[in-house]
């Protein structure tokens, strides 16, 4: 179908992504799903309201490890204002945060600490793996770097890049907000699947 055959109004946006959520995630629930508590109109609206509130006030825990942390700081600065999305309150204490942006490469010595901080966050919590090193080990495929933080914590959104520009991080944040609103569940906990416990992080 040639490009001249379509009228301008019918033309599909060529830049729209083919799919929003990767196939390695849990199966996507269809939109407008009936909630598990049986379709009570009042509860549905309340749930929608709660999801809207949660997605628009994500409080990140500061977990900047390396270079991506600087781009995360740029995302919270004035040009790419993360505060537009309600997420400018970077909590130093994980007990007060509900989003963990793992920004940077995770080394072997740091992995138990990451899990410890994740365990200290109260439910509901989400994780964004920011950068190539957090997503899959990135440039470094060696003895010192864990090849992807999803071996340690369950990750909801992966933001590729080395480092991702602040716009990409904000796009990832927007995807997470949509994911929260659509009630797509978090992937299973990798430590439960593999049965590993980290020395020093047992609660």
């Amino acid at each position: 179908m040639g490009i001249d055959d379509q009228k301008t109004s019918e033309r599909v946006n060529p830049w729209a992504p083919v799919q929003y959520v990767s196939n390695t995630q849990t199966p996507r629930l269809p939109r407008n799903i009936e909630p598990a508590d049986g379709g009570n109109i009042l509860l549905t609206s309340v749930n929608k309201l709660i999801d809207w509130g949660r997605s628009n006030s994500l409080w990140p825990a500061t977990f900047g490890l390396a270079c991506c942390a600087i781009e995360m700081m740029s995302a919270s600065a004035s040009r790419w204002d993360i505060s537009r999305f309600g997420a400018e309150v970077f909590r130093a204490s994980p007990r007060q945060a509900d989003l963990m942006i793992v920004a940077g490469r995770l080394s072997v010595k740091m992995a138990p600490v990451l899990r410890h901080i994740y365990d200290q966050m109260p439910d509901p919590k989400w994780v964004i793996a920011m950068g190539a090193c957090a997503s899959c080990g990135g440039v470094f495929n060696n003895y010192a770097i864990i090849q992807g933080v999803d071996k340690v914590v369950p990750v909801d959104v992966y933001v590729p890049g080395c480092p991702p520009t602040p716009e990409m991080l904000l796009h990832g944040l927007n995807l997470l907000q949509e994911k929260i609103r659509q009630r797509i569940p978090t992937p299973p906990d990798p430590l439960k699947v593999t049965g590993v416990t980290y020395i020093g992080s047992e609660d």
């Binding site: 490890l65 390396a66 080394s107 010595k109 060696n142 770097i145």
Partner: peptide, 11 residues
């Protein structure tokens, strides 16, 4: 220190 050791020299 060592929480960000990346093995850059060996890489």
């Amino acid at each position: 220190i060592g929480y960000l050791h990346t093995g850059i020299e060996k890489t």
